[in-house]
Amino acid sequence: MRRVTNSAGAAVAVPSTNARPSIAHHALIVALFLVAFAGTCGLLHSRLPFPSVPDIAPRFRYFAEHKDEFDTIFIGSSRIRHGIIPQVFDEAAAKNGVPTHSFNLGYSGMWPPESYYYLRQVLALHPKKLRNVFIELMDYRLGQAEGEAPTMRSVYWHDVPHTGMALRLVAESPLSFNEKVGLFATHAHEFVQNMTNPGRGAEWLEQRYFPARKKVDTSWISRRGFDPEPATEWSEAAQEEYRRQIRVFEEASTHEHWRPGFAAALDDILGKVNQTRAKAILVIPPTVRPEEHFTACPRGAFFGFYFDSPSKYPRLYLPELHYDPGHLNEAGAREFTTQLAEHFTTAWMTW
């Protein structure tokens, strides 16, 4: 305040025109800016097309263009990508009285939360004929990707729900406090990077007006997403190590329950599929990872086909049908796909 003399000669107090704004005033301005900035970023993010994630984006865009041709899709990691042959599945299913037309959307390293985000983007396309959604049942593999520098692949799925899922899974993990803090920071950074859309405008302009013309491998189109692994010669030492892994796997206890965060995320994605009138179907390909030795099938899944049993499915664990302990070669993929189709049609006919 300052004092001035009015027309009558009396001194009066008037507000000072050079008074500094209060801290609350500054805080309000900053808060309004952040809200406006976040809202603008969110609006832009919702309007931008699927990001140009190497290898994944071409498959998504191809499916988007042909979405109404397929009634069955497979979502998961490299074990789905290299393990399920759509043409073989369709032939076996039709032979058993359940005609299908399927597409393999699996890709290497795609597990939750990324696979759930990817599936939601596929469902958002509203495929008219979609009736069967096969989802690979696997938990989040903590720490296998977070230690690397951020890439478009690691960033693109970090929206609010899937970043929240990742943070909850980290919080529930047996990792140390310092490791958890590091992972929290990584996911938070990738969330901010994703939602602020750096470079997405230029990417959109390039896609729309200057599409890339470089040659890329599109052989997966004729195979409807399937990518075969070659047959390999296993040394005696490699075969013995594989047999040891099988023994350890069979001796390991099965998991009847999931961590609360993963169970909630799984129920949510199953519900999302069921809302589309498609059937959510869980599948576990042949595996020797003890942490993937599941037995329970959640209520939201119409069927669950678990091939994590060397004693029950001995052929699927033969070295000659494997590229490595975790992946089938093309001959193994044919065997696995045929057995999966037979289980599916049997369950369908008796459902």
Results as ranks from 00 to 15, higher is better:
L34Y: 05
I246A: 02
Q121F: 07
R208E: 06
S235R: 06
P260N: 01
K215G: 10
P310I: 07
R223K: 11
M138R: 14
W258Y: 15
L43R: 14
P49Y: 01
D139V: 15
A149E: 11
T100L: 12
A92C: 07
T232P: 01
I29W: 10
P198D: 02
P211Q: 03
Y317I: 05
P21D: 00
Y140D: 08
H158P: 13
G261Q: 06
G106L: 02
F210H: 07
S16I: 03
L282Q: 02
S102W: 00
M110G: 05
F262T: 06
M195H: 06
A38W: 09
P290S: 02
A124G: 03
S52M: 11
P211N: 06
L43Q: 13
G109L: 04
G9S: 00
D268V: 05
F50A: 09
R247A: 13
F60T: 06
A10M: 15
E190Q: 11
H66N: 14
K180Y: 03
P49A: 03
Q87S: 15
G9I: 00
V30I: 14
E203C: 02
V283P: 00
P49V: 05
A11L: 12
I80D: 00
K279D: 12
N6P: 09
E179A: 15
P260R: 04
I85W: 03
P285F: 10
D324F: 00
A333I: 00
L28K: 14
N96Q: 14
E236Y: 01
A263E: 12
F63Q: 06
F262R: 05
N274E: 11
R247I: 13
H322K: 12
Y116T: 14
